[in-house]
Simulated scan of single mutants.
Amino acid sequence: MIDIATLKSRLLDLAIYLSVLALISSISLIFYEVLHQSLEALRELGFRLMVEEWNPSLGKYGLAPSLVASFTITSLALLLSVPTSLLVSLYLVFYSSSRVRATVRIAVELLAGIPSVIYGAWGLFVLVPWINDYFGPLVGSSLGKLSPLFRHCESYTGNVFSASTVLAIMVFPILVFTQLEFLSSVPSDYIEAALSVGATKWQVIKTVALPTATPGILAGIILGFGRAIGETMAVSMVSGPTNPPTYPYSLFSSATTITTLDTHEHR
């Protein structure tokens, strides 16, 4: 006869298996539906998706400018946030006191709780004017002479750099939390062994902590990438979207991401 404890354990195992099965089934159905709809669009439009302009009224659905804008803004946002978040995480784990660590964690948690529209409003009314009045002309007058990538073009509705900066701030908490978690989980035996043979704290970080925590850090970067490339509201407010979308040729040019394009077409 099966006792109550064994029965509860088996029921719990069954519930876990069913939950995992439901999760896998849901993800598979979503993937199938997206793939099915995408293949239909590819069969009908083909390579025109990459070469035509965006003009749905004429049956033209060129996505190339928006795809380039999305990946450009997201990549620049990660370029700004990953090194900064890693430095903050290393400081909190290996250098700061417990009081400083607790205070910074609270501040980062507050950043994570701010709605997207607030970030967008701050970017539109504070960051974009500052870029137009000070930072953009400064960069354009110096680096802009060397490369068109840094050429300044004034836009009162935003640009690539303002959108990337806002996204960098938005994904910063995700990166910090994941990096803190994995850096803190480095076995203390590894650290003590390195210190016992005369390694400095920086050598311990470089040769022990970072290599051990690299898989977790990369996982956090992937999460940050997904968060950034899927953001809609804040990016729409500070990227200076145009209709039809155009290729972003400069850090200070307007850009229309895929999410922004989808929002404008379905409003």
Rank of each mutant, 00 (worst) to 15 (best):
W130R: 12
N132W: 11
Y134K: 11
Y134M: 09
F135H: 08
F135P: 06
G136Q: 06
G136F: 09
L138N: 12
L138V: 13
V139L: 12
G140Y: 03
G140D: 11
G140N: 14
G140F: 07
S141W: 06
S141G: 15
S142A: 12
S142V: 12
S142R: 02
G144R: 00
G144E: 06
G144W: 04
S147M: 08
S147H: 07
S147W: 05
S147I: 05
P148L: 10
P148C: 08
P148Q: 11
F150T: 04
R151W: 04
R151C: 05
H152T: 07
H152W: 14
H152M: 06
H152S: 05
H152G: 00
E154D: 08
S155I: 05
Y156P: 09
Y156L: 10
T157S: 15
G158Q: 08
N159Y: 00
N159R: 13
V160R: 03
F161R: 04
F161A: 00
F161W: 10
F161P: 04
S162H: 01
A163F: 03
A163H: 05
S164F: 11
S164T: 01
S164Y: 00
S164M: 08
T165S: 13
V166T: 12
V166C: 14
L167C: 05
A168K: 09
V171M: 03
